[in-house]
Design a protein around this nucleic acid. Structure first.
Lengths: 153, 153
DNA sequence: TATGAAAAGTAAACAGG
DNA sequence: CCTGTTTACTTTTCATA
């Protein structure tokens, strides 16, 4: 990816509501030039969308947990993500190399919600779970700095 | 939190660049009324900011990993997050209840970067690590649906 | 805390190099 | 792929209920 696009992406990842005028100033391009580039980055799927970053505890979701899941029957076809996809409390789902199959990031309001969710995940996903409660979040949602170079092989 | 503010927050969490005019239409309020409410949500820190959602592989960060860390010396004061705070590859840091002390979410470009990062984290954080490679990401960055009710005690 | 109106600024579309 | 212009829309502020 071009350094200029990288700069644009990085800037928008930090401030998703910046105006095209300001963005253009930051990256040294006219308003319409950045505008065109951003539209193209959106079309190409490099920019997937825009989100407000929320204070989860403040909106009633003070509990975070990480949950590893393993299918009850490892020989059955593995469609756990599809089977859990409708559960909104599962904020992220990673397929991992390790003892477990998936790691889920969970966000709920109360211990009771976590208990209900656990039962639902086990039943709906036909899997066993290991839950790790998050006690505090020193940080989250940070942008890893983008690589400066392309990895030419 | 009021249902109206919840609605606003949820809408902005899905589309962080929606105009106040459209947002007002969605929640049934005039442009200036939503505008004032959003500004207040920002001031109160309930909306912490706005981000573009990036396709990480496309911008040169195809590798994701989860890393559990435990201090070498559990009797030493635990300031691991502060000591690791300057490492940009650590996208999230959760303090957890469990065998390990923290879980880190890592984003890098190449296996070699992960190797270097590992050494740096162990040295800089005085901690041992267990790394779990993410093979694929069925989903990520989803908004957990906001609770409808306040939990009156 | 809401509305509606006015001023300033921006997005989107377009012509042209 | 850039710039500059134009038009429509949006943000922001303000007076007012």
């Amino acid at each position: 990816m071009e350094p200029l696009d990288r700069h644009i992406v990085q800037t928008l990842a930090q401030d998703g509501r910046i105006s095209f005028a300001d963005l253009g100033r930051q990256v040294g391009l006219s308003t319409s030039a950045v505008h065109q580039r951003v539209k193209r980055l959106e079309e190409r799927g490099i920019i997937k969308g825009y989100r407000a970053v929320i204070d989860y505890p403040a909106v009633g979701l003070p509990m975070t947990a990480l949950m590893s899941v393993t299918p009850f029957d490892p020989s059955a076809p593995d469609d756990i993500p599809e089977r859990l996809a409708d559960i909104e409390e599962i904020v992220a789902c990673w397929s991992v190399a390790g003892d477990e199959y998936y790691v889920l990031l969970i966000r709920v309001g109360r211990p009771q919600d976590l208990e209900e969710l656990l039962a639902r995940i086990r039943q709906q996903g036909s899997c066993s779970t290991i839950t790790t409660i998050v006690l505090s979040t020193p940080w989250e949602d940070r942008l890893g700095s983008l690589p400066t170079d392309d990895y030419a092989l």
